[in-house]
Design a protein around this nucleic acid. Structure first.
Lengths: 143, 143
DNA sequence: TAGTTTTCTGAAAGTTATTTTCAATTTCCC
DNA sequence: GGGAAATTGAAAATAACTTTCAGAAAACTA
């Protein structure tokens, strides 16, 4: 089942409706590997669909997060970002504090340690965030 | 040098002034192991100092973060929290999504892996955040 | 598939947390 | 102590969401 179908099923289960706006937003969201903020995606969609509203984009992104198709990220700049979830893949982020570059990384050994920590505290992990902040190669060179 | 002295030196270097409010806030902040939001600390300080302003508390917490005496945390609930830095100790957090409990943990092996990842991308780490979200022992029991 | 019910949408207003402004006050440096 | 420069608290301003509401669209129902 592709992700459009997954989202439709999610909507049906929730008693929500499948609208043209939701499909537009879903498509634009999936066809990118960016880390969109509501504002970013809103502005992008406006280019082809001048009538779409900010609130609708935001509500749909929240729905996508709820449905598991998106993950909400917060890098501490006061703007939530949303990232498409690519099944069976997990990664975390390096964030350049100078230019804003976001690099994704995977490190299964960290996940293993997380589980160990959780066990230590009888904690049941639902999700996690792991972000490294600093300077990317280019910015470090310039500094 | 204790942390009050450290902060005073920071102020002096920045050409800022040492005021009674800043000392009050610093003291209240250090004498706690909580994860205060501006609001939390403001309300606490108000009990003994009804005249202190929210903006002053917030500005001082920002200064503390800038001086390295505090770390600004964001657990995604839309409120920044500040935590005293205890030198030579580093920890991350388990956050209960049900009751809000915050547990601190240390895991040096994660730090080692982080450095490895950074090297892989020629990235210069300045800071990081690592948070595990889920249910604490009590909430998991009730669920 | 027409009618009815329910959910959606977009614009605008409302929130919430944080930040800035500004006039009065307080420091700090001679 | 005098005076420039920073600080304070209250209130206004911002920024990022979130909610409201009336008209529009989808889904259900007979």
């Amino acid at each position: 089942m592709d992700r459009v179908a997954t989202f439709n099923e999610f909507l049906r289960e929730k008693g929500l409706k499948n609208t043209s706006q939701r499909m537009l937003i879903l498509e634009a969201f999936l066809n990118s590997d960016s880390h969109y903020s509501t504002e970013d995606l809103y502005l992008k969609l406006r280019q082809d669909n001048p009538k779409i509203g900010y609130a609708t984009v935001h509500r749909t992104l929240k729905l996508l997060a709820e449905s598991g198709l998106a993950i909400e990220l917060n890098f501490g700049d006061g703007q939530a970002r949303f990232e498409p979830v690519h099944e069976a893949e997990h990664h975390d982020h390096l964030v350049c504090t100078k230019c804003g570059l976001i690099i994704e990384f995977e490190e299964p050994r960290v996940e293993a340690l997380q589980n160990e920590v959780a066990k230590r505290y009888n904690f049941m992990i639902q999700s996690h965030r792991h972000e490294l902040y600093g300077l990317c190669q280019d910015c470090a060179k310039k500094a």
